[in-house]
Simulated scan of single mutants.
Amino acid sequence: MSDERAGIFAVMWDCHGLEAVQSVPNPADITFALLRGAEPPALPKLMHWQLRARYNSQRHYEIYIITATPGIGEDDIQDMFEASPQTAADTIRRIGQKYYSDRREPSRVAIT
C-alpha cells in the first residue's frame, strides 16, 4: 500500500477487547500481483469473522470497516485499543461503516 493512499481496515472487537485488525488491500495491488503471477495480498476473512461473532453472541462482537488517514497502520489501531479501548470503539463506531454488530444496548426501560 502506498503512503499517499488512505488506509482501509477491517476491525473486529468484542466485550473483552480488540480481536482482529487487518488492512484491506488496494484493488490495484491485487490486480498487478495477479498479472505478475505473484500471490495477491490477503483480504480480511470477513465471513469467518462474522460466523465467529454469530456463534459467540455472548461476547457481543462488532465488525467495522474504517478508512484511516495516510500513515495510519494496523499497529496504530492496535495501540489505540490498548491505550483506551472505549474511546477506540466509540471513534470507530462514529467514523466507520458497520459490517456486523451484536452490541448490547442498555435497556430503554427505566422503570418496570
Rank of each mutant, 00 (worst) to 15 (best):
E39Y: 09
H48G: 07
P70R: 03
A28R: 03
Q78W: 13
A33L: 04
Y55F: 10
T91W: 14
F81W: 07
Q22R: 10
Q86D: 09
A10C: 15
D29Y: 01
M1D: 03
I92C: 12
D29G: 00
S57D: 13
I8S: 05
H60Q: 02
A88I: 13
E39H: 12
A83N: 13
A28Q: 08
Y55C: 13
R94M: 11
W49V: 02
N26T: 00
I63N: 01
Y55R: 14
M12K: 02
N56K: 02
F32H: 13
S101L: 10
S101W: 09
M1A: 06
G7P: 05
D3G: 04
A68K: 03
R94P: 01
T91S: 15
G7M: 06
L43G: 06
R52I: 04
A83Q: 09
A38W: 05
Y99R: 15
S23Q: 06
E62D: 08
P44Q: 03
A20F: 09
H16Y: 10
L46H: 04
H48T: 09
P106K: 14
C15S: 02
E4C: 07
R36N: 14
D79M: 10
S23L: 07
G37T: 10
V21M: 02
D76M: 07
S2H: 06
C15V: 01
R108K: 14
W13V: 01
R104D: 06
R108D: 11
H48V: 10
V109P: 03
E74C: 11
R54S: 07
Q22N: 02
A20I: 07
K98Q: 15
R36K: 15
G71C: 09
R103Y: 00
R103C: 02
G7R: 03
A89F: 08
Y100L: 10
T31E: 14
M47P: 07
E62W: 02
P40W: 07
Y55L: 12
Q78N: 14
Y64K: 05
I66S: 03
T67M: 11
R59C: 04
A20R: 12
E74H: 04
G71E: 12
S2Y: 12
I72Y: 06
D102W: 03
Q50N: 11
R54V: 14
D102Q: 13
R103T: 02
E105K: 14
V11F: 05
I63D: 00
A10T: 15
D75T: 07
L43Y: 09
E39Q: 13
A83G: 08
N56D: 05
A89H: 04
S57M: 13
